[in-house]
């Protein structure tokens, strides 16, 4: 994945902050933020995840004019008879689960910054799980840089594919 342009926009930060139940003025109020230590509205610590909105190929967003694997009238919008249609078994779980996420912060991200991101594959390994059967882990490392080329956040993501759904706790 590469995101060429990830503008940090005030409205987007507000939507994100609301979704995690934040009431902190540092994400909402420009006047407050100017008087606080950071000096500008900040992006919350996990906000870079929303760079997906600016990734033209992001696979967990419906593409205009294409079939979507989530439900429509039936449980999946993918037409099985069509050769171009996806493999519904493969889409189970929608691309696996998120096992681990790590951030290293080099510089606070502020509204008005324009980031770019480059993702590189990391390690991959397998493990026998208790509930989900054989577990296949894959790591990726994304470097986010600002408009000056300065590294602002390094994000390491570990995804896991399970043989069968991880069952719920009783």
């Amino acid at each position: 994945m590469a995101v060429d342009r990830f503008p940090i926009e005030a409205g987007h930060v507000i939507m994100f902050a609301r979704s995690i139940g934040e009431v902190n003025d540092i994400y909402y109020n420009e006047d407050y933020a100017k008087g606080a230590e950071p000096g500008a509205i900040l992006a919350p610590p996990t906000f870079v995840q929303a760079s997906a909105q600016f990734d033209s190929d992001y696979f967990l967003r419906p593409k205009i004019g294409q079939e979507w694997f989530g439900s429509a009238k039936g449980p999946t919008g993918i037409t099985p008879s069509e050769p171009s249609g996806g493999d519904t078994k493969k889409s189970s779980g929608g691309g696996g689960l998120h096992a681990e996420q790590r951030y290293v912060y080099h510089k606070p991200i502020k509204v008005g910054d324009v980031l770019s991101a480059i993702t590189k594959p990391g390690a991959s390994w397998e493990k026998e799980g208790r509930r989900g059967g054989n577990l296949m882990f894959t790591e990726s490392v994304t470097e986010y840089r600002d408009q000056n080329g300065d590294l602002v956040v390094t994000a390491t993501s570990v995804g896991v594919r399970t043989e069968r759904p991880a069952t719920v706790k009783e």
């Binding site: 979704s19 039936g74 929608g94």
Partner: peptide, 16 residues
């Protein structure tokens, strides 16, 4: 989902 851009149906689509 809307804010982050992760629209994986496992997070909102009970039928799926």
């Amino acid at each position: 989902a809307g804010a982050s851009g992760d629209y994986n149906p496992v997070h909102h689509d009970q039928l799926y």
